[in-house]
């Protein structure tokens, strides 16, 4: 299930106002009361929520792992990043799979709406309102007349920091996936 199949990007893709200049194509999703956008280039796919397998002892923002066609993918409780209470998983809940180089991550969101082009000129930097950690997740804010505010997030930040919550172990699997070929 790819984004291309999921959303009809031809209609609705352009903001209703007159259109000029560079734009950012975003996947829009809902989290609690707010609307968020994430650069579509960083999104690999959007999945329905199946079974999320919890991993005891994992960092607090990790919900667990899922099986995406044989690959184990970590799913984050996205609400935690924006200091929101965890919400229930509903029929509308989705997992957005984002990627960065070789890494992939799943973001649990309340609802995925559409793919939308947002004029870059409409995106304002949030500046230094505060140096909260969740502030660093935010790339900017777009004000759209018809529907208010869209918070544009930076997917890179999800991959950053607090990787291992409890020390660095050397699992036996590290032997498996080392592709290094030391000849000498």
């Amino acid at each position: 299930m790819s984004v291309g199949n999921l959303f009809d990007t031809s209609s609705n893709a352009v903001d209703d106002q007159e259109y000029e200049g560079a734009y950012l194509r975003c996947v829009l999703f809902q989290l609690d009361a707010e609307k968020y956008g994430i650069n579509v280039q960083r999104v690999r796919e959007v999945l329905r929520v199946g079974e999320i397998r919890p991993v005891p002892g994992s960092p607090f923002d990790v919900l667990g792992v899922i099986n995406v066609r044989g690959v184990i993918v970590t799913v984050l409780d996205t609400r935690q990043f924006f200091k929101l209470y965890s919400g229930p998983i509903t029929d509308l809940s989705r997992i957005i799979i984002i990627e960065q180089q070789d890494q992939v991550l799943g973001l649990l969101v309340d609802e995925v709406e559409e793919v939308r082009d947002i004029q870059e000129s409409r995106i304002d930097s949030v500046g230094t309102l505060s140096d909260d950690s969740n502030n660093r997740m935010i790339q900017g804010i777009a004000h759209i007349a018809s529907e208010g505010v869209i918070i544009i997030i930076e997917p890179e930040k999800f991959f950053d920091g607090f990787n291992v919550g409890h020390g660095v172990g050397v699992p036996a699997s590290s032997v498996i996936d080392s592709g290094d070929d030391d000849l000498f």
């Binding site: 990790v62 970590t74 992939v104 990787n163 291992v164 020390g167 660095v168 172990g169 699992p171 996936d177």
Partner: peptide, 9 residues
Amino acid sequence: PLGTKLQGA
């Protein structure tokens, strides 16, 4: 391997 953020778990 476990996913991102869990590799050293």
